[in-house]
Design a protein around this nucleic acid. Structure first.
Ligand SMILES: Nc1ncnc2c1ncn2[C@H]1C[C@H](O)[C@@H](COP(=O)(O)OP(=O)(O)OP(=O)(O)O)O1
Length: 635
DNA sequence: GGGGGAAGGACCA
DNA sequence: TTCCTGGTCCTTCCCCC
């Protein structure tokens, strides 16, 4: 019997051996919403279960969940059979390997820092109540009929909680008051709270608007206070400044501190002292699901395949874990079992992606779909602009009317951020998927400049301004391994002597008399170095756009093997090439002027502000607004 | 065998 | 009638050295 998930934010779903009463099918529908969570004590779980099931069954959402559930079951079955194939000696060997990992992890155990995790109680709901005190004491949820972001503690008594659809919450609690979210408010309250955090740890890690990790070691030492006193004081100060209550957890590392902040929620705190025995005692009987990173599926896999339910089981079953999971996962599970987590302050990471997605009532008409895509591209381009970001990878996300999610992505050889560029490429991705009937569309840009894959790559401008090359006649530049010289395709620079072009050790290349020597294209079948001039041409070509459309000089391998790259390059090039207008010979077709359709004289056209040809003519003779790229690729 | 890209999915607030 | 949004990380597969 499938066990559909009921939420993207599910917790504590447990399948109980499939022995459910066929007359009470809701028992098999184990949802997030009955899981233990702050404020949920004393809830009639059976009733919540029944209502959620009754309101869901037969819906498209429900059917999709059944499909997903079947996949999880399949995965569990597969792991079970893998596990059955293991011999005793296999397991023994894996135990040995795990013991080495454990020894390693133990050397990383750090009991010298005191970490505090702070989590505001029912944050959005609490802010709304502060702004509108008449809500106090009444069941209230922030969100709408289709989805709830969070609920206050009065509403939680009815089983209403975050990630529950509003219409189901309504059935559970008919008097439920709905408040629309107002993120500016939450942001401004969050900023106030962070002022307090800052006083305790200027390098605190903000995880979201309502959560942060603070290293309070120095506070405790310099002020000669216990961590308990610091936590009390901090919570008091947050309350005095904002009127918001919060809960705190204190432990030697962030993983345990996070669990602790939930122990006495709301408006409470819990401390695990910096002592190995105390940590192990806390962790040993802790249900694995309490740990951040172990969600509904992982919990089920660990339980059903390995009979693991509390953290110490992870150590007992280390042999099987090492046999069945990847090295990364094994490390994670073992460190959970040992109660070891992050204890040093990590460097702040730049963001890795930026996205925008919207749910709407079903659309299957092509024009409607492309209109949605344009909205998304417009939105995303604005966000990219305000964050001053450009990226190489565009990902289109589609959710069909039956809740099936698809993503389609492509990585360009250059950076994009403008709406037009996003639209050109995303449209291609969308077109390839038609016909479609959608309920959601999303657009994401990632692979930003400065990403790890970009660390060694410079733009042309940067490339020539390394301070040593341009104009200096003869000089030398160093390229790190994997360097890419031209953004339009992957080219590598290496010593001539290096046969296969893989620039593994950061060799030096030279610029002599303005010419790059010892260069090399990756992707040539011969593996030998090409002449330098093509590369140089290629650079100039992009740099000052000296070429015209008919005079593209592309290395031969690009024309054949990397045709798609050339296409992208084209789009980019054309946009820039014709930014100031374009010339058409007499007799040209495809565009109309203010006065005539057929050009009897050479014509100078200009692009609209958005880079479009506003008066192009399509094959049916209809006037159409086209991007310059589309215009030239039409023919 | 590993690097990069694509697709999918788990998980988090 | 109505089951979100924006982000990270991991895994698997494929292709290409
Ligand atoms: N699935 C979700 N989608 C969108 N926003 C969410 C989702 N879950 C939680 N949030 C938002 C709303 C919450 O107020 C905020 C913090 O979440 P969280 O800490 O889990 O609960 P909470 O602060 O509302 O209550 P509490 O911490 O007291 O249980 O994040």
């Amino acid at each position: 019997m499938p066990q559909p998930d009921h939420s993207p934010r599910s917790e504590g779903e447990v399948v109980r051996g499939g022995s459910t009463d066929p007359n009470q099918p809701w028992q098999a529908y184990h949802t997030v919403f009955t899981n233990a969570k702050a404020g949920m004590d004393g809830v009639d779980k059976e009733k919540v279960q029944r209502v959620v099931y009754e309101m869901s069954k037969g819906s498209k959402y429900f059917e999709n969940e059944k499909r997903r559930e079947a996949l999880v079951m399949q995965k569990i079955q597969h792991m079970k059979s893998q596990s059955a194939l293991l011999t005793d000696s296999d397991v023994k060997n894996h135990e040995k390997a795990a013991d080495i990992k454990i020894k390693n992890l133990e050397t990383q155990r750090d009991l010298s820092r005191i970490w505090m995790h702070v989590d505001l109680d029912a944050f959005y709901a609490a802010v709304e109540t502060l702004e509108n005190p008449t809500l106090a004491g009444k069941p209230m949820a922030v969100g709408g009929m289709s989805m709830i972001c969070t609920a206050n503690y009065e509403a939680r008594k009815f089983g209403v909680r975050a990630a529950m659809p509003g219409f189901i919450a309504c059935r559970l609690c008919p008097d439920l008051i709905f408040v629309s979210p107002n993120f500016e408010k939450y942001t401004s309250y969050s900023e106030k709270v962070r002022q307090v955090f800052h006083d305790y740890d200027p390098n605190f890690l903000a995880r979201s608007l309502d959560e942060a990790y603070l290293d309070i070691t120095d506070q405790c030492l310099s002020r000669n206070m216990s961590s308990e006193e610091v936590a009390e004081e901090l919570r008091r100060r947050v309350y005095d400044l904002t009127g918001l209550t919060c809960s705190a957890g204190v432990a030697p590392n962030r993983m345990i501190a996070k669990v602790c902040s939930d122990v006495n929620k709301p408006n409470g705190q819990f401390i695990v002292p910096n002592d190995r025995a105390a940590v192990m005692a806390f962790v040993s009987s802790l249900p694995i699901r309490k740990i951040g990173g172990i969600g509904k599926v992982t919990e089920r896999i660990l339980k059903e395949v390995l009979s693991v339910s509390v953290c110490e089981d992870l150590i007992d079953k280390r042999g099987l874990i090492s046999a069945l999971f990847s090295s990364i996962s094994t490390d994670f599970f073992l460190s959970v079992g040992l109660g070891i987590g992050g204890s040093t302050t990590p460097v702040e990471e730049p963001r890795k992606s930026l996205s925008c997605e919207r749910t709407f009532s079903e659309i299957s008409h092509e024009d409607g779909l492309f209109a949605k895509l344009e909205e998304l591209a417009d939105n995303l381009a604005r966000e990219l602009e305000s964050e001053e970001l450009q990226g190489r990878t565009i990902t289109l996300k589609l959710k069909t009317a039956t809740f099936e999610v698809r993503t389609r992505s492509l990585t360009l050889p250059f950076l994009v951020c403008r709406k037009e560029d996003l639209l050109i490429h995303a449209s291609k991705l969308l077109k390839a998927e038609l016909p479609l009937s959608l309920r959601l569309m999303g657009l994401r840009v990632s692979h930003f400049q400065g990403d790890s894959s970009f660390l060694n790559q410079r733009t042309l401008a940067e490339y020539f301004s390394v301070g040593n090359s341009a104009g200096s006649g003869s000089s030398e530049i160093s390229l790190a391994s994997g360097s890419s010289v031209v953004p339009s395709f992957t080219a590598e620079v290496s010593e001539l002597s290096q046969k296969n072009g893989k620039n593994t050790d950061g060799t030096n290349s030279k610029i002599r008399d303005g010419t790059l020597v010892d260069c090399f294209f990756q992707g040539t079948d011969s593996g030998s170095a090409l002449d330098c001039p093509p590369l140089l041409k290629e650079m100039r070509w992009i740099d000052d756009l000296q070429c015209s459309l008919c005079k593209l000089e592309i290395p031969s391998f690009l024309e054949t093997e990397r045709q798609e790259h050339v296409d992208f390059h084209f789009a980019e090039l054309l946009q820039r090439r014709y930014a100031d207008g374009f010339d058409l010979e007499a007799g040209s077709q495809g565009v109309e002027t203010q006065t005539r359709r057929h050009l009897s004289q050479p014509y100078k056209g200009t692009l609209s502000k958005r880079g479009h040809i506003d008066r192009a003519i399509d094959s049916k003779g209809k006037r159409k607004c086209l991007s310059i790229d589309a215009f030239f690729s039409k023919d």
